[in-house]
Structure formats: C-alpha cells, structure tokens
Design a protein around this nucleic acid. Structure first.
Lengths: 115, 115
DNA sequence: TTGGTTGTCAACCAATGGGTTGAATATTAT
DNA sequence: ATAATATTCAACCCATTGGTTGACAACCAA
C-alpha cells in the first residue's frame, strides 16, 4: 500500500474551486471586495439559497470569511488557502523533475551499478 | 448576470485532482515513471476496476497519457494541464491585487470624485 | 487449443452534490 | 406592532461519483 497522504483539506479545497459558480463567486469577491450574500446572488440565475450554500462551502475551506453585522453577512475573499493547492502542484512537479534527474545520472554512469 | 466564464475544462481538471486516490496515482506516476495499470493498482486496497476508472478520469483531462502495447497499457503522467489550474490561481490573485491598488489610489486622491 | 494475464465494459449501489421550495430566524423600518 | 429585508435551515429531487462484482475481449504462453 502506498502511503496515501490522505490530505482531506486539500481535497476539499480543490473540490470547492472545481465548481464554476464558486470560482465565479471568488472572482467577484476579489473584484468587488467585501459583499453581502444578496448582492453576490443578484448576479446569478439561481436562487439565493443556492448561492448561500456555495458561500458556505467556500467558507468551510477558508477561501472566504464572514462578518455578520445586523442582518447583513459581509463576505470577503481570502486567498491564503490557495497555497495548499499551489504547493501540491509544486511538489508534484519537483517529484517529476527529480525522477528525470536520477534517470539522467543513471545514463551518465552507464548501467547504474555504482554504490 | 456575471459573465460566468464557464471553463468546464478547468472544472474537470480540478475535480480530477480533488480525489486523494487520483492525486496519489499521479504522485506514483511521477516517481516511478511509466507504469502499467495493474502495477499502479497493486499499491491500493481497492479493486483493479476502481483504479482503471480513476486512470480514465485522469486521462480524460490530459493529466496522464496511455500507450497500449499488447495487453499492457502503459500510463504516463503529463503535468502540462496543471498550468490551467495554476493560471487560474494566478489570475485570481492578480484581480485581488488590482483592487487593492485601485483602492490605494482612491485614498491618495481624496474622496475619489476626480474624473 | 486451452488457459492465465491485462484491462475494459456494464450494471448496480450507496453516498454526495447542486439545485429547488417552504419555513424559520433575526434584524431593521414604518 | 407590523411588515419588509437578509439570511439560514430542512426537506426533498435528480444527476454524478466512487466503489463493487461479473462478463467480456484481447493477448500471450503451454
């Protein structure tokens, strides 16, 4: 069995941004800054409830934060967590590179029977 | 309605890597290079069929390629498509930065009633 | 030819996900 | 007090997903 680094956080983060509506919401929030749920929802052909749920998903993985003032919930983007994904990509690429380097050394040293 | 850049490709890519098993498979492929389906599957507590399906998902989004020789299907990682995701992250961050810059200019120019 | 390997296809199942509608809860305005 | 606003909660529906098992197909070896 492989070690299976079962990084559930990363899975949930990637799943969160794998939805077009949620990515669009994030973009909106980055463009317009802090926004209320209703304001965000008004741009979509979808019920307020649906948007509310999407926001909750984003909130759960930390991609947005919420500040409730009276009956208004102010939502703000927080791109910090995106690093989780970026780091995974980086790591994967370096694993890939590493293999190529080792392969290259093997070629140079002939049959690899050294050490 | 917001423009809704419905980048289905990006959605499918992100969804593909949002699964732990598939991320693990990709890691394995980067470490070990070209591998057969059975070899990959042998590391998991899961049926060969399940792994076969996972590989097909990765294949469909271009994260792996397949070369069939006889009855052996040789699978190889191809990290090219990851750029799709990386670019989206980059774009999002630059949108965020842009707003901060504009905000900053507004502060400097007083109440923003210019132009 | 007979039989083991390698892998997919098809059908199924339980769980999850994205959407809906209809309350319910707070808060603000009249 | 009453009504409108802002938002979530709960229940539901249907499509998708991650897994299973059982055939099947193609290939290689005896």
């Amino acid at each position: 069995m492989v070690e299976y680094k079962r990084d559930e956080n990363l899975s949930r983060l990637l799943k969160a941004v794998s939805d077009t509506t949620r990515r669009s919401l994030l973009t909106q929030l980055c463009q317009q800054g802090v926004s209320r749920v209703t304001d965000l929802a008004s741009d979509y052909d979808m019920s307020l409830n649906a948007i509310s749920k999407h926001i909750k998903v984003l909130e759960k993985v930390g991609l947005v934060t919420r500040k409730t003032i009276g009956r208004s919930h102010w939502i703000e983007a927080n791109l910090e967590q995106i690093k989780l994904a970026e780091n995974w990509f980086k790591e994967l690429k370096s694993i890939w590179e590493l293999r190529l380097i080792k392969l290259d050394e093997l070629m140079k040293n002939g049959d690899g029977s050294n050490d």
